[in-house]
Design a protein around this nucleic acid. Sequence first.
RNA 1: GCGGGUAUGCCGGAGCGGUCAAACGGGACAGACUCAAAAUCUGUUGGCUCAGUGCCUACAAAGGUUCGAAUCCUUUUACCCGCACCA
Length: 816
Amino acid sequence: MELNFNKIEKKWQKAWEKAKIFEVKEKSKNKKYYVLEMWPYPSGSGLHIGHAFNYVVGDILARFKRMQGSNVLHPMGFDSFGLPAENAAIKNKSHPKKYTEDAISNFIKQQKALGISYDWSRVVSAHNPDYYKWDQWIFLKMLEKGLAYKKKSPVNWCQKCGTVLANEQVHNGKCWIHKDTDVEIKHLEQWFFKITNYANELYEDINKLKNWPERIKAMQRNWIGKSYGTEILFEINGEKWPIFTTRPDTIYGVTFMVISAQHPKLMQLVTEKQKKEIEEFLKKIKSTSEKDATELEKEGAFTGSYAINPLTKEKVPIYAGNFVIADYGSGMIMAVPAHDSRDFDFAKKYKIPVKEVIKGGNVKKEAYTEDGKLINSKEFDGLDNHQAINEITKYLEKKKIGKRVVNYKLRDWLISRQRFWGTPIPIIYCEKCGIVPVLEKDLPVKLPENIKFTSEKNPLIDYKPFVETRCPKCGKKGRRETDTMDTFVNSSWYFFRYTDPKNNKKIFDTEKAEYWNPIDKYIGGAEHACMHLIYFRFYTKFLRDLGLINLDEPTFNLFNQGMVHGEDGFVMSKSRGNVIDPLNIIKEYSADTLRIFLVSIASPDSDYSWNNSGIESMHKSIKKIIDFYKHLKIGKSSSKIESKINKSIKEITENIENLKYNLAIIRIKSLLEDLISEKEVSKKDAEIFLKLISPFCPHITEELWEKFGNRGFISLESWPEFDNTKIDERFEQQEKAIENLIDDINNILRIVGEKKEKVFVYVLPNEKLLYSNESDLIKKKTGLNVFVYAVNDKEKHDPNGKAKKAKPGKPAIYIE
RNA sequence: GCGGGUAUGCCGGAGCGGUCAAACGGGACAGACUCAAAAUCUGUUGGCUCAGUGCCUACAAAGGUUCGAAUCCUUUUACCCGCACCA
């Protein structure tokens, strides 16, 4: 009687689709619940086990909430712009659209094979002009609000991508996609979004993200990098230069200044005499730029200029240095070698004097960076350095030579990309009018479809039908921007579009978006902590400020599922040969087995390794469930099983609610064992059990539900409620007592070490029924024939007089 | 360097103040069934001891809080992750 799982799966997947049971509307009496898994990049190789895990984690919750009576929005879409599609097009001399759309249909097929309960009527794809039109619209709004701007600046360039990258996409000096490729610095005119305008709000509102993993919040705090300090005006060549420092208490110890080698105004400070030296220095650091930043020694060269310390009026030399970051703070630092180890290293190397201003260390040997009392600081001498930070800042403010400021590490978001397969930036360059935005009514600016892909170069540049256009202002000839936008713009607002995916008048209807948002549970990997998960917060705030939505944060509830590793414990990779293909697993074991197995090994938020014997045994459990229903005798449930069922409902409900699926599954399995050992079970209880497994194994539960003679879908049934009055702890106690007895008997058997046949159990008269009712179980577990006597039974067989040892709840035993 | 996290038995992994020698799964070993194997079922799986009791050593290490700690606090160590010359 082999079951054809795949056939059953297909049957129900079709039935769900036909009945459109997962499609939702805003009009509902029920409470809304928005479950969202991060949309994938549809790669040509199809979905991998990590995707499957991600979707299953979300789907179990979606199905559970739906059964609980929520109006559940569970949509899916595709982040379909990006480099692989373009590279494939170059290779095959085709168009990225074809690659992308093939990949999408393959993804959908696979997602359906997993039995994920998406509302397929809402699917969106980034590369669809109906979608990216709104990317362009947002761009125009950003421009209007002064949040989109173009500037020439040093930008990160990845040779392999053939394009610039945002700061967030540079990891350890390497490209986020090509992890072996050093990012180069190029000076280019590029478009930016002024995310820094929101730096403070993005930082402060992290506190509102109550149900986000701590580490993601920590990463974002770190990335935004808010720090409080003082800006002090130093006079250089008669001009005031603001210098940011967090240590104004050390201002009397400044012995030199260092300006970043990348600072745009560096050459202004270089004197004729020093020009050669500086140029040599710049050349040198350029040639060593491929080295790991950590290994770089601090280096610099004297610019020839001096700065005047506003408090001491001392003249200190200004160096250009390789360790100062151009666009953090003021791009120039006041160097205090006595109390900063970097400054100290630099001073030692270039023989610059060290001036101690905080007591406590030996500044001849090393920088003293701990706390202490001020010295050599005139009227501030003797102050505790923490106090001094305050006092000196106050003094500077009074003299108008400094002020308290807040600084952020966050940089503006560089969104230009020199690639084809992205959202075109809706800008026209006119000789007369300059930079002119495309009119809203002319959106979308579409990517051409009959364009040839021959080389790595963006083909738009040479494609006249695209490039040549008219200026919307003066009507003269204009040239279109050929750069496209970073693909992260697409994912920054897609969760709003799901709520109104077909709207061609507006980006989304406010009412609809406000009905569904914020997302109630957002599920995805942790790798986007400082990219997507910052950008989508930024967009939400921007759209709020446009008056489109009254919402500060896209979600307060973020869940990071763990990584699924190969059976060898390593990350799955083709080269290691440890890749598990979800489709193969579905074919071999069924989608239900894969689903339940994926969430059974460990808590879904922790990493784990695939285990082949594990899925094997899970598959057996599934068959056992089916078998149980095949042989089930419907009748009346014992009060014991009723107690167990109600207790299980309670616990499983809690476990699923908290995404502790692994624990829910343990309960399910143990309840199954209990049910199997019953002689008969009521129809109601048998159905409750099916419902409890349904979010994990939707296909077989639909099938069994139907076999029960039910019409309609179990997926739409209501989740069982538990009845506290049916839960009777006495059953647990009794069970424990029987277990103890079995343990004791087995223990004696082990000690005796001989083969025995019979066990005589002597119990108190009032306990006789309890134990004799379970004699089958005792027999099964000990392999002995069981005889239960009341201690006062005159007929009892008790050659060793053991019966008198019996105590309440602890029977006496004799084995022979 | 900064920040976040983790450390449990052969392995994976629960537990997060008592009911813990520690759920559940995998593996291993033993038994039942079988001509035999697979499947299935049952038991064992820290040590000593014992007709079922009891004792010892245990949840990275060392301290501490507590009547009581795998669970709370401190320090240390190891590992993982993120940022990294951010002034």
